[in-house]
Design a protein around this nucleic acid. Structure first.
Length: 617
DNA sequence: CGCATTATGAGTTGCAGG
DNA sequence: CCTGCAACTCATAATGCG
């Protein structure tokens, strides 16, 4: 009786929800569709912006010392060499870069050196100490080679060792014989993470023999940052004073290492309740949000990852992202499922507004049909975090068998067992004594995506769960991004890293923020297909450009992309969490894990974009 | 090989109660 | 302060099947 009313309301609500999206899309597609734009400007994969080297901004800032001595002889200008060595580059790489680019074009030399340090997993030659001149010919193909690498779940077996440096291979062979010293083990760990043996050695030397992996990677990444900052340093006064800059940077490295060693600085605590700088129904007592000058946009940026990461991870993330205090929010304040996440961003936190229509806030509102089967002793109102795997049929069968031995309510011990399992696997009641995992379309609804967002296009059911489990909760993210609407009435240019199934794009679109140019970087092809399919179905008038590999997005390509779209207004991304998440029993290795270390690429790209944009403005 | 199915704890936090 | 307990977690790998 009252059920039918509730159901009807829900159905109306949900139809309205879907209709809302269609309406917002169809309202702007009537007269200004440019059928050719998308196809012509669409860029698939990494090769479109490849080594064409047609940058117009290049070569305008040559150093004074590089003007003379065009040096037809083979001896490089020692002043020039010292300049780059003073910035922290190994001399061997500097000599090689000069050899390849000549002494005239210092920007190209720097870009080559930057490529060495940012594209690391890479082909053999770049670290071969005894490389012959011929090997440099093949340097041209480096980015394209990288773009052919597929998937990030590769295991490092014999198949891949052919692409490793000689030093790396030596370490691997020594490892198999079990004759590695502590220092060599550390080197191997860093090499497996994609750092060069050379820069790892330097880091170990400077950070001391007892430095942890985290400290060493911090150091290496800080060194990379420093080099990039040197290259794009807008302050011309500092550029000629090589030694001065080098000293400043060196001190900065030590500060980072030192800070890391001090356990007192690892004091980031999760708020209780986990409402960040506020949710629609609640505000913290006092919001003291003060951004350091270095964090002020443009561009705005927004980084996301799991809140319950291993100790020290958020301290490191915060330290790399301008020391901004992370905003920890549980999505249970936005929808019917929990999702504890940390967000580091430089957006204003005043005058936020939620997406409409408001999603159901309880299980009962989200799944009215289940109320009929929901036992009185199951008091859950919110679901737990949606993950990438679902409960097994065997488990639901065990639960059903356990319940059918009783007429009425089971004893409390059985209740506790069932409730524990239901909470662990997010099971809902779908029949008498019957529980079941959520369906993919139900997950889509809970996370704020359009129904069937991930359906079709050749994606398997298993992969739908995986992609959804790795995604944003759209309402939560949209609440934070809502402040952009008034600031950018004509729309934004978006750089979306680790896009997944497009949570950021969907959030902005649902907010009514026009997407002018979207550069989306996502490893998984099915996910890229999902986003493009959504893009076309919502009749977007902007351009969607997608890339596959964040690690292949170097300074050159970013310059090309930025000059093409004219700068980014927002850089958004949640880097891989699988090495941080508690569900991982196998490889919860922290921020230096195989996939989660891609956080440093978010940082690298953010820093590069800021440098490029501040230089060109 | 793609896909579905299944089993596989630890790390961290919060809280009650000494 | 401490201890014990409860709760929760954007997952991985092995297996089998068509």
């Amino acid at each position: 009786m009252s059920f039918s009313n509730v159901n009807l309301i829900f159905i109306l609500f949900y139809v309205n929800n879907v209709h809302f999206q269609d309406k917002s899309a169809s309202g702007e597609d009537s007269d200004n569709i440019d059928w050719n734009t998308d196809d012509e400007l669409e860029i698939q994969g990494d090769t479109a912006f490849s080594s064409s080297s047609t940058l117009t901004t290049r070569g305008t800032e040559a150093f004074a010392s590089s003007g003379e001595a065009s040096s037809s002889s083979g001896v490089p200008n020692s002043k020039l060499v010292n300049h780059f060595v003073g910035m922290g580059f190994p001399e061997k790489q500097v000599l090689k870069a000069i050899e390849e680019n000549g002494e005239e074009d210092t920007d190209s030399i720097l870009n080559t050196l930057l490529t060495y340090s940012t594209l690391e997993d890479s082909p053999p030659k770049q670290l071969c100490v005894n490389s012959d001149p011929i090997s440099s010919d093949y340097e041209e193909n480096l980015p394209d080679d990288l773009s052919d690498l597929d998937g990030w779940s590769e295991n490092e077996t014999e198949d891949n060792t052919s692409s490793l440096s000689e030093e790396h291979k030596n370490l691997l062979s020594l490892e198999s014989t079990g004759s590695l010293s502590e220092k060599e083990k550390m080197l191997l760990s860093l090499a497996n993470m994609g750092y060069t043996v050379e820069e790892s050695s330097i880091a170990m030397e400077r950070c001391g023999p007892e430095a942890s992996i985290a400290e060493l990677t911090d150091f290496i990444c800080a060194a990379q940052l420093s080099r990039e900052a040197d290259i794009y340093l807008p302050d011309d006064d500092l550029k000629p004073r090589y030694n001065g800059v080098s000293k400043i940077k060196k001190r900065k490295f030590f500060e980072i290492c030192k800070k890391k060693n001090d356990p007192e600085t690892e004091t980031i605590r999760l708020p209780n309740p986990m409402i960040g700088f506020g949710v629609p129904s609640m505000q913290p007592e006092n919001i003291n949000r003060s951004l350091p000058d270095s964090a002020i946009g443009p561009p705005f940026f927004y980084y996301e990852n799991v809140a319950l990461a291993p100790k020290g991870v958020w301290d490191t993330i915060s330290r790399f992202l301008n020391d901004i205090e992370p905003e920890f929010v549980d999505s249970k304040y936005f929808c019917a499922t929990a999702r504890k996440r940390g967000y580091v961003h430089n957006l204003p936190v005043q005058n936020r507004f939620p997406l409409v229509p408001l999603p159901p806030l309880t299980i009962q509102q989200a799944f009215p049909l289940s109320k009929r089967w929901w036992p009185q002793w199951d008091m859950r109102e919110k679901l737990n975090c949606i993950q990438t795997a679902i409960g097994s049929a065997k488990l639901t069968e065990r639960i059903r068998n356990a319940l059918e031995r009783f007429d009425g309510d089971p004893p409390t011990s059985v209740q506790k067992f069932i409730l524990d399992e239901c909470r662990k696997w997010n099971l809902v009641w779908v029949g008498r004594n019957k529980v079941a995992p959520l369906e993919p379309d139900e997950v889509e609804m809970l996370l704020g995506f359009p129904k069937n967002h991930t359906r079709g296009g050749g994606i398997s059911r298993t992969d739908r769960y995986k992609s959804l489990g790795n995604s944003f909760q759209v309402d939560t993210v949209a609440y934070h991004l809502s402040v952009l609407k008034d600031m950018f009435p004509s729309g934004i240019n978006l750089l979306s890293l680790f896009s997944g199934i497009g949570g950021a794009e969907v959030a902005l679109h649902r907010l009514g923020i026009k997407l002018k140019n979207v550069v989306s970087v996502e490893k998984s092809k099915v996910n890229r297909d999902i986003v493009r399919s959504w893009w076309e179905q919502t009749n977007q008038t902007g351009n969607l450009i997608d890339f596959e590999d964040v690690q292949a997005l170097d300074g050159d390509r970013l310059e090309e992309v930025i000059s093409y779209v004219g700068g980014f207004d927002l850089i958004i991304g949640g880097s891989p969490c699988n090495n941080l998440a508690g569900s991982n029993r196998v490889s919860r290795d922290g921020l230096e894990g195989k996939d989660s270390s891609l956080f440093y690429d978010y940082f690298r790209i953010l820093d590069l974009v800021k440098s490029i944009m501040s230089r060109s403005s």
